[in-house]
């Protein structure tokens, strides 16, 4: 409305007068149409903005609270859970020792698996066709064979090869050891888990390396940085950002997956629990013992994952958001001083 009015004034005047003639009369002649619009704009800036709320969220929250309450109530009141038995076994020496074995298998499987995985990933990305083919073949084989078959194979290796001898192929032997002496059940389990893990780790690491911009490797090459240093100092730290979430999945699934080695009668957590409930028939509380331990350790791994990811995120944002702990602390500080929670300054 206000934009058309000066034009109308101009069109109405028979002679196109100078600019100072056209404007003041326009402003003076139609003060009533100008002012309300102007006041309307002023009013709009003063309006309060109300964030959009979804009332269905509250219904959802209510439903979930009820369901959780029902479940917790069941845990507390249903005698079938048998909490006294749970409490009796939860921290017994047998269970703790079994837990130690589970952790040991996880750590060895992860470390050996990922170490071999890095080598395989580098081979897969090598310019050398021979290395590429070997790595491809390894990954193909170990992803194809079921883990349980592999574990049983290593466990029963002595059935195929009683001794391992060192010497020339098809020629004389310089010495030999009995296969059973070389590795027992635990050795077979670690070997199987690590070889299996390496195939998956290799693909995760390769994916991470591919996600790093080609210009990074090129810049490192242009600066003459040695090959291995290019991988470990320049490319892998950047690849870690996409490797870590997948790698954490693998570690956690390996941690629980160690229960599969119970087929080798290794006294890890799940095997030990089975032994105990085989004796006293209290299946549910003992499965609960194992489950709660798995939950506790997975939670610790998840927290660890958060901080490791954060470490490798440095340089990826202008400043990192505060950790939950830092947020909590700044909120506490906020109660003392009057200032509210402040955004974290650049970390590191």
């Amino acid at each position: 409305m206000s934009t058309t009015s000066p034009a109308r004034t101009l069109a109405a005047s028979p002679v196109p007068g100078p600019a100072h003639r056209a404007n003041p009369p326009g402003a003076a002649s139609e003060p009533t149409t100008e002012r309300p619009t102007h006041r309307g704009v002023e009013k709009a800036t003063a309006l309060t903005v109300v964030p959009r709320r979804n009332r269905w969220t509250w219904l959802g929250v209510a439903v979930v609270i009820v369901l959780v309450a029902m479940f917790v109530n069941g845990l507390a009141t249903n005698p079938g859970w048998d909490w006294p038995t749970f409490g009796r076994y939860f921290a017994t020496e047998t269970i703790i020792r079994a837990l130690g074995t589970t952790i040991q298998l996880t750590v060895l499987g992860t470390v050996a698996g990922f170490a071999l995985g890095v080598v395989l990933a580098a081979m897969r990305l090598s310019a050398n066709a021979f290395l590429r083919t070997v790595a491809w073949g390894y990954i193909w084989a170990f992803r194809s064979i079921p883990l349980i078959v592999q574990l049983l194979f290593w466990f029963n290796i002595a059935y195929l090869y009683q001794t391992i001898s060192f010497g020339l192929p098809f020629g004389p032997s310089f010495g030999s050891v009995s296969t059973n002496d070389l590795f027992g059940a635990l050795g077979a389990a670690v070997l199987g888990l690590a070889l299996h893990q390496a195939a998956y780790a290799a693909e995760i690491i390769r994916g991470g390396i591919l996600s790093v911009d080609e210009g990074q490797r090129e810049a490192a090459a242009a600066l003459g940085i040695p090959r291995r240093r290019q991988l470990f100092r320049i490319v892998l730290p950047q690849a870690m950002r996409s490797i870590l979430p997948n790698a954490a999945n693998e570690v956690i699934s390996l941690f629980k997956g160690t229960s599969i080695v119970s087929v080798l009668a290794i006294p890890e957590l799940f095997y030990q629990v089975q032994v105990i409930y085989g004796r006293n028939s209290r299946v549910v509380p003992l499965l609960l013992v194992a489950t709660v331990w798995y939950i506790i350790l997975t939670t610790l791994l998840t927290v660890g994952q958060y901080y490791v990811e954060r470490h490798f995120a440095r340089g990826s944002a202008r400043s990192l958001p505060p950790t939950p702990l830092q947020r909590l602390r700044s909120r506490w500080a906020g109660f003392g001083a009057q200032a509210g929670p402040r955004p974290q300054e650049v970390v590191r």
Binding site: G215, E218, A219, A222, I234, Q238, F312, G315
Partner: peptide
Amino acid sequence: RIGFVFQSFNLFPH
């Protein structure tokens, strides 16, 4: 012994 400066900088971001 030969310096090279890229169009897209290619600094190491980490």
